[in-house]
Design a protein around this nucleic acid. Structure first.
Length: 510
RNA sequence: GCCGUGUUGGUCAAUCGGUUAAGACGCCUCCCUUUCACGGAGGAAUGACGGGUUCGACUCCCGUACAUGGUACCA
């Protein structure tokens, strides 16, 4: 395998929103492919017709697009190994399943769901371990226990049936995982998985092997939850005679919930207040909406950078990597074995870093959706200027309006408590004076505004410190924001005077 | 229950038998800043437990504990 071209695939099941862990799996696939100059394939694993969800496939592709990950081959961009949806590859699988039956490595099983149910019930009480294995299959209705004639008759009558792999007895299966090293399993302890379902569709087990073979996949990365079924896949590669070209496996660690333990789920995000999906997702069946990182105000670069570092480490002290740098440094051997708890605070830190290094014009475009509902017309150039003023205090793009809304809209209310304490006749007279002086100022530039302010302070005979904070609150509404004179300059002379006068009135009447 | 996998500060993590056990996030203190933030300087905080192997173990081996994944005609 080592001398052939690197080809990897991300093979999601289109059943809903794209989870953090899913995105990280794609990312690692993508980085590995690019690092080795190979191909990255997107294959849709839609073999379970009962779990079809409208729009899920398009959604997944949009997520990849947002993340800046372009597949070399996908349902939308077919290469030489299509089709790229398993549902469209249906005819390809049955022949291999039947080949296995003929070779004696698989068999036909006619058990009904009820038969299986009662088998499991029975074993639960007797052996603790209910599985369809070498011992069980001798008592079930299948081509191993039935006569050839009986089987033929059942088949001729279109009796529902599946094809199961026939696990060997007393064998130890060993393979080398790229991040875990040698892993071994006892064949006696893994059951006879269904390969071909009664509806003629393959299960994941058959499909993944057949497709990886046909698509010439060289390295297969998937979540750790697949490790227990690896022996089935291993055997399939062997029985089908493809062992020599079997991909190298790497089972990625899981992303865990921040509190307690366990796999991070959509519910954890809702419970703890952070997104889990890459982008907003609304389930068409239940209409349940889930927020995504994009809509929460993440930059895609920050999102992918953060995910790359969750479970992988370059060995350098650097943490901020462009996609190109990630491609350059990535190696699957440096992926951690243990699961990583997701840390939303750190995720926001990454986003903050990226907001700082992104230029204001692009930020303005990205922020547009977050202010679209404010009903204010804002020129892009002004937006960019304001962004430059407040970006250092943004962790999420969605925080922009809270931090900068006062640049565009007069504050609805002002934090009186911040002024009240210092509000005396002297300060009131000062602000009346200041408003007059401001109104008469021709050169409305930052430095000159400050100059005029200083003059007013001197004339009124008060301390500058007593005037600065009240002025800020009058203009901003609260104790936050960039330099006061920069704010005054930006909102303009008329508006500055207006806000001061409004505040004086408000404070006088209260 | 059974099988697999994992376990360095609160979190992400470096270390590939010999270090004062890096760094980052978060937290705390101070400085800067007539707000908030940014920035700067400090600080607290780590090898699950028990046995080996070794001159020497966070690093290797074996147990135990704990966690987690699987145990579907779902992926």
């Amino acid at each position: 395998m080592s001398n052939s071209k690197v080809r990897v695939r991300f093979a999601p099941s289109p059943t809903g929103g794209l989870h953090l862990g899913g995105v990280r799996t794609v990312l690692y696939n993508y980085l590995f492919a690019r690092h080795h100059g190979g191909d990255f394939v997107l294959r849709i694993e839609d073999t379970d017709q009962s779990r079809f969800v409208a729009g899920a496939e398009e959604y997944i592709m949009q997520c990849l697009d947002w993340c800046g990950i372009q597949p070399d081959e996908s349902p939308l961009k077919p290469g030489a190994y299509g089709p790229y949806r398993q549902s469209e590859r249906k005819p390809m699988y049955a022949q291999y399943a039947h080949q296995l039956v003929e070779q004696g490595n698989a068999y036909i099983a006619f058990d009904t769901p009820e038969d299986l149910e009662s088998m499991r019930e029975k074993y639960k009480s007797e052996h603790h371990n209910a599985q369809y294995d070498s011992r069980t299959r001798a008592f079930m209705r299948n081509s191993l226990t039935l006569s050839k004639e009986a089987v033929d008759t059942l088949l001729a009558n279109n009796t529902p049936h599946v094809i199961r792999i026939k696990m060997p007895v007393n064998e130890t299966l060993v393979f080398t995982d790229m991040i875990r090293g040698e892993v071994s399993f006892e064949t006696n302890l893994v059951d006879d998985k269904v390969l071909l379902k009664a509806d003629g569709m393959p299960t994941y087990h058959l499909a993944v092997v057949v497709d990886d073979y046909l698509m010439k996949i060289s390295h297969a990365f998937r979540g750790e939850e697949w490790l227990p079924s690896a022996p089935v896949h291993l055997l399939l590669w062997k029985y089908l005679g493809w062992e020599a070209v079997m991909p190298q496996w790497a089972h990625l660690p899981l992303i865990l919930k921040p509190d307690g333990n366990g796999k991070l789920s959509k519910r954890d995000g809702e419970r703890l207040g952070f997104p889990v999906f890459a982008m907003d997702w609304t389930d068409p069946r239940t209409n349940e909406a889930t927020t995504g990182f994009r809509e929460r105000g993440f930059l895609p670069e920050a999102f992918t950078n953060m995910l790359a570092m969750l479970g992988w480490n370059s060995g350098l002290e650097q943490e901020i990597f462009t996609m190109e740098e990630l491609v350059q440094h990535f190696s699957i051997e440096r992926v951690h074995k243990g699961g990583a708890k997701f840390d939303y605070e750190k995720a926001k830190w990454f986003n903050h870093q990226y907001i700082q290094k992104t230029d204001n014009v692009r930020l303005a475009e990205l922020i547009q959706p977050f202010i679209a509902d404010k009903n204010v017309a804002i020129e892009p150039s002004k937006l960019a200027t304001v962004i430059g003023l407040v970006k250092e205090r943004l962790h999420l793009l969605s925080e922009f309006w809270d931090q900068a809304g006062f640049f565009f809209v007069r504050p609805e209310s002002i934090d009186n408590s911040a002024i009240q304490a210092k509000w005396t006749d002297t300060t009131k007279q000062f602000f009346v004076l200041l408003a007059e002086k401001f109104a008469a100022t021709a050169d409305w530039s930052h430095d000159n505004i400050e100059l005029v302010f200083n003059e007013a302070v001197a004339e009124a005979g008060i301390k500058k410190g007593e005037a600065m904070l009240p002025l800020r609150v009058m203009l901003v509404g609260g104790k936050f924001g960039p330099g006061v004179f920069a704010i005054a300059e930006q909102i303009g002379k008329e508006e500055t005077v207006r806000r001061i006068e409004n505040a004086i009135q408000l404070l006088t009447n209260s």
